[in-house]
């Protein structure tokens, strides 16, 4: 589930507050958004790809927080990993035209 809003990366655009389908974040006055309802996170990773600065990190475990640190996420280059795999950049969609899923279906 969502675990990190990086204050060093975040530009306080509050897009995550708007796009999170389960209303996990709260905007704050003059600061970065806070994770206000972590247990409602459905671990869909969509906030990450809408984030224009790759400031969010959703850990893979959906049942509760893992306690991973921002330093580890940074060091392992995990910020923005899902967006890069899709071909989304700076919160903008892209890459679906290169989706090879039709080849997988033939193999199936």
């Amino acid at each position: 589930m969502i675990e990190i809003v990086s204050a060093t990366r975040c530009i306080e655009c509050d897009i995550c507050v708007k796009v999170c389908p389960t209303n996990v974040f709260d905007a704050t006055e003059g600061g970065v958004p806070v994770i206000a309802r972590q247990d409602d996170c459905q671990t869909c990773f969509l906030c990450e790809i809408y984030c224009p600065t790759d400031a969010l990190y959703v850990a893979e475990f959906a049942e509760g927080p893992t306690g991973i640190s921002e330093a580890e996420v940074e060091e392992r280059h995990l910020f923005g990993g899902y967006a890069r795999a899709l071909g989304w950049k700076r919160g903008k969609a892209g890459g679906s035209e290169f989706d090879p899923t039709h080849r997988i279906r033939v193999a199936q």
Binding site: E60, F98, I104
Partner: peptide, 16 residues
């Protein structure tokens, strides 16, 4: 390769 590129969300848990 196709699985990784075509189903990237499936690989997020493994990579992380």
């Amino acid at each position: 390769g196709w699985l990784r590129q075509g189903q990237p969300n499936c690989f997020v848990p493994y990579d992380r």
